[in-house]
Design a protein around this nucleic acid. Sequence first.
RNA 1: GGCCCCAUCGUCUAGUCUGGUCCAGGACACCAGGUUUUCAUCCUGGUAACGCGGGUUCGAAUCCCGCUGGGGUCACCA
Length: 591
Amino acid sequence: MHSTPTGSTITRFAPSPTGHLHIGGARTALFCWAFAARARAEGRDGRFLLRIEDTDRARSSEDAARGILEDLAWLGINWDEGPGFRTNLDREGAVTCGGDPRDVGPFYQSQRREIYDAHLQTLLEAGLAYPAFDTPEQLAAMRKAAEAEKRSFIYRRPPGYDHAAALARAASEPHVLRFKMPPEPITVRDEVLGEVTFPYDQIDDFVIRKADGFPTYHFAVVVDDALMGVTHVLRGQEHLNNTPKHVALQRALGFDTPAYAHMPLIFNTDGTKMSKRDKDKAAKKAVRDAKIDTVAALIDALPPTSRDREGAVLRSLTDADLIAWLKNKQRQLPRDQVAAVAAALDLRLPEIDVEDFRASGYLPGVIINYLALLGWNPGMKNEDGTDLERFDAAFLAEHFSLDRIGKSNSKFDREKLLAFNADTIQHGMTDEEFATEWLAWAERFDDQLAAWAGEDEARWRLAAAAARPRTKTLADARASIAFALTDAITYDPKSVKKHLLKGEPNGLAILPDLRDAVAQIEDWSPEPIEAAIAAFAESKGIGMGKAAQPLRIALTGTAVSPPLGISLALVGRDTTLARLDRCIAHDHTTG
RNA sequence: GGCCCCAUCGUCUAGUCUGGUCCAGGACACCAGGUUUUCAUCCUGGUAACGCGGGUUCGAAUCCCGCUGGGGUCACCA
């Protein structure tokens, strides 16, 4: 309201810092960002601002707020105004978010109490708000009575209410402030849903200031949006029923009503809400299905690579804890323990928060893309006639519009997200880009891998080139090059039987000559290695597979690996020859 | 339960405002072939939807009504 250019488009995302950023919240933030960005792309003033709604003192935390800022920044959803934040991604192009060019802050509601109090005072003096002294118990009783009569509970100022007396009493007694709802229906104009009218008898005299002196959400949001010059409120449909309250408040305070756009909600594929508890539920079900009921059994089930870290987490759990958790549906385990349980059972937990998707190895650009498609659609075609659905943030900034937001709720399909992620990794980036992304991921989520990457840069590039074509997420990339991470190769019996012991001549018989051929290779890099193996097969008059598979088993222990040229290059000459020697000498008949 | 919102393949959706070009198109998933030294990729083909019932109209996925179904919301949480 200070130096806001007229004709501005100002949107905001206003999370409550009570936990990580939920994927649904990320979609809301994305749409708000995109709408402002579109205005800017058209040469108008567009701003996306971030405000932290921390009026619930018990549940809010500064840690959570920071985490949300970081998640948003990671996704590339940068805010123009709001808490300051610098993305210190080691890569080029560090971005600074936030700031307060129009002087409309602070952006933490807990720091805006005088502002709310001033507006509260206006309302009080105008008789549009009034103190109420009902205790929680009394309110509960009133609700119960209403329920018994099968009508919904609507709080109204009692008849004969003495405003002056109440004000006097409020000076010394704990109380809340309620808004005197005007006796008329309220029609909300929504950009997505159209006009929606709410009858007066459905909206009660809601609380606008809590007994602790903090404003409620309804009051703070209305005051802040108005004072911060917000022109468009984009939020989830769960807020539609709140909107008439906000409109009434705006009228009482003399504020303009912003444009509203309520967007459809996102659910799990089974129709349930996407909730943090889903992870706990999934872990619990897996433990039950595996019929495990001791911590020791869980630790035993841990793969060697996670023995240390996850093992330690699990040891902090007692059998009694475990059984209590298993028996009680309501009971939840701490986040890290759930993760450790999942590791033990090789279970992929459902991702809920942005941080989960990040840990699972999804690319921010892909998440943005997929999220945008949930409830919005560009309605455009590709040149080949298929629907356009792969795009980036820049595209959104250019084409996003409220009129293409859908009305119906959608289900979050991780399969499609995964397909998008795999497609981007495999076809939408170079080996170099992948090497960089993968390393950044490892540094945050896989210490061992990051350390290995740091040992040899050239080797890391080879690893990236080997893994990329068969990678769906940054987290699963490791599996395709696992044979290079360790010398502890175990031979897969089925593969050995099929490719080493069967056939005329059998693979094992071919290996010694192949070993010699490999030893002759001068330039130890993918193409020459590949060529040498092909030449060897030809000289022996055997098919490529006849030579390739035995070699693959000698190198990796299995019949599956990246193309041999790159696999051998990755492992290195010495190790390759050592593994060949070991395979040749190994007694495969006993395993 | 009151109020409010919504309704196209299993899922995300195009098409609905401006009825006919839609015996409904795309994507993911799935199924069947093919390419490939393994895996992955890639290519080709296929299965699959307008919730139901009434209207209006020459004609309805598209407009209207009802039903059914799904969702949201009814806090001193946001």
